[in-house]
């Protein structure tokens, strides 16, 4: 009996530990949801945030499998990220934009708005300008890939729409981004 109790305790402790570590050491799942929260607030969609947890690496929107259901996540396309104080596209961003361009070609009725964002460091007015050029970089590349500029609108939020607010490089790197929103179908 005593042994059984000890085992039960151990199992409980282990399961607790698992829960705990899965929260702290793997921030990917939970944090990922937080990152896109402000976006979800402007266009509230419970489905889109669920699907992000299920498939955090998804790059473009459209139709996605959530559990056994096929859901149209509609207006959510994953952001691309930038280096500090830079508006040049990174190679991973180019890949993302290539997929996006292909998806836009397959969905010719869709228009997109690109929102440039910055981390909190530096002058917020200068960051407004930097957000403009970050959005413009993505637009320029999508046009280069054959998308009509008429389908691409750009806007800068500067540092005013952070996706997370900690003063850490991890957080800053998530804020230096272009968000993509579908504006017309």
């Amino acid at each position: 009996m005593k042994a059984a109790k000890v085992i039960l305790a151990l199992v409980l402790a282990a399961s607790l530990m698992f829960t705990f570590t899965s929260c702290t050491c793997k921030p990917g799942d939970i944090e990922e949801e937080k990152v896109t929260q402000p976006e979800a607030m402007s266009t509230p969609s419970a489905i889109s945030s669920t699907s992000e947890i299920v498939k955090p690496t998804a790059v473009t929107a459209g139709v996605i499998k959530v559990g056994n259901r096929i859901v149209d996540i509609g207006d959510k396309i994953y952001p691309i990220y930038f280096d500090f104080d830079k508006s040049a596209l990174r190679s991973d961003s180019r890949e993302t934009l290539s997929e996006l361009a292909q998806w836009m070609k397959n969905n010719p009725s869709v228009d997109i708005r690109i929102d440039g964002n910055c981390d909190e460091r530096g002058s917020n007015e200068y960051n407004l300008a930097l957000g403009e050029t970050r959005a413009a970089s993505a637009k320029k590349y999508l046009v280069y890939l054959g998308i009509s500029p008429d389908r691409l609108e750009t806007m800068s939020y500067g540092e005013e729409k952070p996706s997370c607010s900690d003063a850490t490089e991890n957080c800053w790197s998530k804020n230096r981004r272009d968000d993509f929103t579908i504006t017309g179908k």
């Binding site: 007015e125 407004l128 300008a129 403009e132 050029t133 413009a136 637009k139 320029k140 750009t154």
Partner: peptide
């Protein structure tokens, strides 16, 4: 003020 001209401020 800052305004956009030719994709920059």
């Amino acid at each position: 003020l800052m305004q956009r001209y030719e994709n920059h401020s």
